[in-house]
Amino acid sequence: MKQIIVPGEVVSQSQARMDNAYVENGKTYSKVMGLYDEEHKSVIPLEGPWKPRIDDAVIGIVSEEKNKVYEVDLGFFGRTLLIVGKFDRESYKVGDIIEATIKDIEDRKTIILTRARPLEGGTVLAVKPAKVARVIGKANTMVKQISEAAKTYIIVGMNGMIWMRGGNIALATEAIRKIEAEAHISGLTERIRLMLEQNKGS
């Protein structure tokens, strides 16, 4: 059973160590708008900015270039840099969409990317980072389902940017927006399946 909680709300009458919560005077309080998972004793944010982690696969857009050091927009408040090494021949221009992996995070505010590759054409949809896990689904089931129904090539970045190319992008977008809005309500996979089925013809 999961329960919706607001910042400052008590999640445990005793001291409990968990993310997105804090302890004061022997009690544990939520720091976020989120769900409290009684079973796993964890606080899951329902909203909020993305927290980058090393090895996260992200989608970004090149926003600046200086001597083969590229600034990349990941929708993150800090800086994101892609330093192209000697052996990479790749060069980018502003507005290029890339897929990359986080190599390092300095002082929690500068992200260093590696293993970048350009994504040709298509568009980018930004979703709330807190909903990314639901868009992907368990073992990629959700994104696969959308991709097949819309015949769209989709790559989901952990930062909330989603790249899409080909097929019925409008339908894929609608499905993803629906997930974003209803991520916390059970039976999501089935609802999305029905929605995709109904719209397949259009």
Binding site: G95, T123, V124
Partner: peptide, 15 residues
């Protein structure tokens, strides 16, 4: 213009 707007602009034109 933000970098993402470059992508959106290209996509609008492509469509």
């Amino acid at each position: 213009m933000e970098a993402i707007d470059v992508v959106k602009t290209n996509y609008v034109k492509e469509l």
